[in-house]
Nucleic acid binder design. Structure first.
Lengths: 148, 148
DNA sequence: GTTAATGCAAAACATTTGCATGATA
DNA sequence: TATCATGCAAATGTTTTGCATTAAC
């Protein structure tokens, strides 16, 4: 189970799985596809553990990111989004589709970057360890709407 | 000349090429490869037009972005970076290499995303109009340093 | 003379930090 | 009991806004 793995990873580095931390994790797991902001995670977490503070949410997200459990990214709208990493090879090939009209965020999987990364290392000596690929445009729904 | 084109585009929508706006543009053109932050652009612009205010720089960057003259992006370090679009087909295929150790920002050109974008439209109906691709890792210099 | 643009200061916003308190191994 | 974690409030840093003034067409 995902949460057991996380707990083990935490204890490995002598961090504790406090009720607050656990609640944040539960929220992240329950909304694994929703790309929540810190504020949204805070709101959800309050339902599970009402006394939590926003700073605690931020601190836990930071820790979970440091431990490689959570992935943090942004769309240039001034706030970070967080997503739990489910593990597995496909993780690396998971990109985002962002609708400029309605803000919808979708996902797309492809390993086509492999070739580019290899070429980068060969041509420039830059060693790629990670990437971030986002596509902007119009989602299917907004296309339909704007064509009517 | 790039600046004439920008001026034409501004006037097309009845915006004015004020001395401040002109100075911001000059800075962007002179530092086209440097991925400056708003604060840095402000500092440079003050040398050309000392009475300019930071808010004016922000307002002009926002306008230039809206007009498609400037590209805004960020690296998750809490501030936006700005880059003038030089025009041309290759613009779209221009990506960033970001060194996690020294903060160096390089560029890389490739049109390999074309195929992915086509696939996205076919598979999900999402119409891609733009993308943002960033590679994180170690630049050649930092690799050398860390291996010694 | 209209309208757009500016400078300044204040506000807004997301995020981080200090610190005393509380909980956990 | 030593250490980690929390809550709150204050601080930070970037970006935006209000408003009276100024400049451009």
């Amino acid at each position: 189970m995902l949460k057991d793995r996380v707990k083990a990873k935490l204890e490995e580095e002598s961090y504790r799985l406090t009720p607050q931390r656990s609640a944040v994790l539960d929220v992240l797991i329950a909304n694994a596809d929703d790309h929540l902001s810190a504020e949204e995670i805070y709101m959800h977490t309050k339902k599970l553990h009402s006394e939590i503070g926003l700073a605690t949410v931020y601190r836990n997200l930071e820790l979970l990111e440091k431990l490689g459990i959570v992935h943090r990214f942004d769309y240039g709208d001034g706030q970070s989004r967080y997503e739990i990493k489910l593990g597995g090879e496909e993780e690396h090939y998971h990109h985002h589709l962002i609708c400029k009209q309605c803000g919808y965020i979708g996902e797309f999987h492809s390993d086509l970057l492999e070739a580019i990364e290899q070429r980068i290392e060969e041509e420039s000596g830059f060693q790629v360890t990670d990437h971030c690929l986002r596509f902007f445009g119009l989602c299917a729904q907004c296309r339909k709407k704007s064509s009517t």
